[in-house]
């Protein structure tokens, strides 16, 4: 499987967007090499502002730029771009629907060796708690590219979640990202695995492994968490009768919570969730994923459990 570093893709896309649209300004917080925002800064120094590790100031400044007609991209790590300046995002960006795009890299436990202070596993709960803020978790490099372009084009506040390491590419060339729509990557009627981010390739792998056993998994990439494609979720529940969610995020407040409340309201079916149930630790990403239950094998087991709970 070919891979891409989503944050590097973002840096390149931002550069292209910057040359097309002079309204774009970029703010960063002393992590611009890591987020690849520095590339924009090199090309467009007049529209690039490094504000140091002072994220509260950065978010409110972004709101100020946006109030003057700018399309503002703010980029830092997921832990520093959501929790630290939550109040500034809430009052200054979400409430007035400011045209600010918060693109956070280094989300989840695959941030790895830096340990739990650097592993953002609560960011989707925080950003998803803000009405009107679009939340996107791209599954791979091509989707990152398109999500950034959509964010630049569509007015209003966005949160885009990216990872540190290289991750597998799951999309075919020429695919089209559809904001707010569930994307079926694999057909199947025994169970629907609804995944986001780096758990999408894991879900595809799990489906691959279950097929020889005669279990046909539908795999859905739910890249947009807000606004949520509730109809797409209800349809998957109706057509498969069992749901598994998979996300590299704390169990509460992420994709699993959103799917559960949707099927609870529409069509209750057995549901299993693959997610984090605690803080992790320092370590290599693949070892952390294995230890904390976020591998294809974990998704596979959850699928079997969900199917087993179907009414016979």
């Amino acid at each position: 499987m070919t891979t891409a570093v989503t944050r590097e893709v973002f840096g390149q896309t931002l550069l292209e967007l910057g040359s097309q649209d002079p309204k774009i300004v970029v703010l960063g917080g002393d992590l611009n090499k890591s987020t690849f925002a520095y590339r924009f800064g090199q090309q467009f120094p007049d529209r690039f502002f490094d504000l140091g590790p002072a994220e509260q100031n950065m978010m409110s400044m972004a709101a100020g730029f946006a109030s003057c007609g700018k399309t503002v991209f703010v980029s830092t790590f997921a832990v520093f771009g959501t929790g630290r300046p939550f109040d500034q995002i809430r009052v200054g960006i979400a409430q007035p629907r400011a045209n600010v795009k918060i693109v956070c890299t280094h989300a989840g436990i695959v941030t790895g060796e830096d340990g739990i202070s650097a592993q953002g596993i609560e960011d989707l709960a925080l950003m998803g708690a803000l009405p009107g803020l679009t939340v996107i978790v791209p599954a791979d490099g091509p989707e990152t590219d398109q999500a950034a372009r959509v964010a630049a084009r569509e007015p209003g506040p966005f949160y885009i979640r990216l990872s540190r390491p290289a991750t597998p590419i799951v999309h075919q060339p020429g695919f089209t990202f559809r904001l707010g729509k569930a994307e079926t990557l694999r057909e199947g009627n025994d169970v629907a695995i609804i995944a986001c981010g780096i758990m999408v390739p894991a879900a595809l792998q799990a489906a691959e492994r279950l097929a020889p056993q005669g279990i046909q998994c539908r795999v859905i990439n739910m890249a947009t968490l807000q606004p949520l494609d509730e109809q797409g979720i209800a349809q998957a529940a109706a057509e498969t009768g069992a749901i598994v969610t998979a996300e590299e995020h704390y169990r509460h407040g992420g994709l699993g919570s959103l799917v559960a409340q949707t099927i609870g309201r529409t069509l209750p079916v057995p549901m299993e969730s693959v997610a984090l149930d605690r803080y992790a630790e320092s370590g290599k990403p693949e070892l952390l994923l294995a230890k904390y239950g976020l591998t294809a094998a974990d998704v596979e087991k959850a699928a079997v459990r969900a199917i087993g709970r179907k009414r016979r």
């Binding site: 300004v25 950065m58 972004a62 730029f65 109030s67 109040d87 409430q95």
Partner: peptide, 22 residues
């Protein structure tokens, strides 16, 4: 500016002023 949580305004104003510079 939407306000009510203290401490946001000087940052916001700095962004506004720098937008004017851009």
């Amino acid at each position: 500016m939407s306000a009510g949580s203290l401490g946001h305004g000087l940052s916001f104003a700095t962004g506004v002023a720098l937008a004017g510079r851009v």
